[in-house]
Amino acid sequence: MSENMNIGCSKPSASINEAEEANKIITKEYLKEDKKNMIKVGKPAPTFTAPAYHKGNFTNVNLEDYKGKWVLLCFYPGDFTFV
């Protein structure tokens, strides 16, 4: 599900999973300027790997590791933003 990460000063950043050919095609479509390429229901979710804080540890989370489970992915403007 996730792997522990070493802590350093360089900022770890999220990345889109590019190793998988199918995901490359999915993400390329969504990055086109044309707004018609907004995420569509019934289509594969673009996969990504992102650094995370999880119950006392810094980890790396890969969406692909959640195949077989239901995922609720929530974005929000920022920590401490009240609501």
């Binding site: 229901v41 594969p44 969406l63 077989g68 992915l73 974005f75 403007p77």
Partner: peptide, 14 residues
Amino acid sequence: NTRGRFIIDPDGVV
């Protein structure tokens, strides 16, 4: 990021 919320099923489909 704005407040986006996505439900992804066990096959990875939105």
